[in-house]
């Protein structure tokens, strides 16, 4: 069997081809699209989505789902802004508190899911309500942030050729993807994540610390979502309790388009970054066009998602029939 075109790699390969093709087509269609500036802005503009998607990838790899990430972004955004403006907390400490909060929510969700074998879908649905409720409780108004250090972070960027640049947010995104890749590939924790996604009972009997690993996945997702909220706040320079509404869907779409199977076990962290790029290109192209209304973004993402889901099904059934046809036995 061709390992290169395996169940794991083929979707990522196709996503890459689609991403490049879309970038080129948009480049021919719209002036100034095919530039480094547009390319690097993809990462700056979608850093928060990317960071959230990386965390979500871990959860989805275990075969679970985390619906709370969107409202976590809103919650951490408003929390950060209020801490800095009203409570006069130094930004680094405020970020620390917000990340700790994300960790706590992730820990709670993970504990309930792992310890009591509750459905991830429902527990994180409760998390969605809870975070949004807390966020709205903190403030229903948008909170502006005026803090020199925070402004410094927001305006920091590395200049690159052709007037392009990489913002602080984009650098954070790359860092998070790097850490995510390291955890998933080079730590036993990552192997355990994959093993649980492949077959939870087996993983248990093979001595994988299933509970700890599951909790770990939701903690990572919680922290990433909180960090996503921080980056979103940097991007808008203000905190808003309703930011991130529906973001969980974009994040899931990015992860799926990036080649991770929703049933768990197959996929990768860099793939999710690729998925975010695809969503970003769609968004940017529609903005460039100017005549297309913004809702086309949703429709195009829906169509793309459909395409990739059908593709996943096709690959899976091809793999199944290949297995059925494979001669059994070692002789």
């Amino acid at each position: 069997m061709n390992r290169f075109l395996s169940q794991e790699r083929l979707p990522v390969l196709i996503t890459s081809v689609v991403a490049i093709a879309m970038f080129l087509i948009a480049g021919f269609k719209y002036d100034n699209f095919l530039t480094l500036r547009v390319f690097f802005n993809l990462f700056s503009d979608n850093a928060f989505l990317g960071i959230v998607a990386v965390g979500l990838t871990f959860v989805i790899l275990t075969g679970g789902i985390d619906l709370s990430v969107g409202s976590m972004v809103g919650c951490s955004s408003i929390m950060l802004a209020t801490l800095i403006r009203d409570s006069q907390v130094a930004p680094p400490l405020a970020v620390g508190i917000v990340l700790a909060f994300g960790c706590l929510i992730g820990l709670t969700q993970g504990f309930l899911i792992a310890r009591f074998e509750l459905q991830p879908f429902l527990v994180t649905l409760a998390g969605l309500f809870l975070c949004r409720g807390i966020a709205l409780r903190i403030s229903q108004q948008s909170v502006q942030i005026d803090h020199p250090l925070f402004d410094q972070w927001a305006s920091f960027s590395i200049a690159l050729p052709q007037k392009s640049s990489l913002s602080f947010a984009a650098l954070l995104l790359f860092l998070v993807v790097g850490i995510g890749w390291y955890l998933s590939r080079l730590r036993p924790f990552g192997r355990a994540i994959y093993a649980i996604g492949g077959n939870r009972q087996s993983a248990e009997l093979m001595g994988v610390p299933v509970r700890k690993t599951l909790i770990g996945a939701y903690v990572i997702s919680g922290i990433c979502a909180a960090l996503g909220g921080v980056v979103f706040t940097l991007y808008t320079q203000s905190g808003n309790a309703v930011s991130g509404t529906g973001l969980e869907l974009d994040a899931i779409a990015a992860v799926v388009i990036g080649g991770t199977l929703l049933r768990g076990g197959y996929g990768s962290v860099p793939g999710s970054l690729l998925g975010v790029c695809v969503l970003g290109i769609v968004q940017t192209a529609i903005t460039f066009d100017g005549t297309l209304s913004s809702w086309w973004t949703k429709i195009v993402i829906g169509v793309l998602l459909l395409g990739f889901l059908l593709l996943q099904r096709w690959i899976e059934s091809a793999a199944l029939s290949r297995r059925a046809l494979a001669p059994s036995g070692t002789n």
Binding site: G127, F129, G133
Partner: peptide, 12 residues
């Protein structure tokens, strides 16, 4: 906004 929190607790 606390209805959201109550709903969350009911779900759990």
């Amino acid at each position: 906004e606390l209805t959201l929190v109550v709903k969350a607790l009911v779900v759990l």
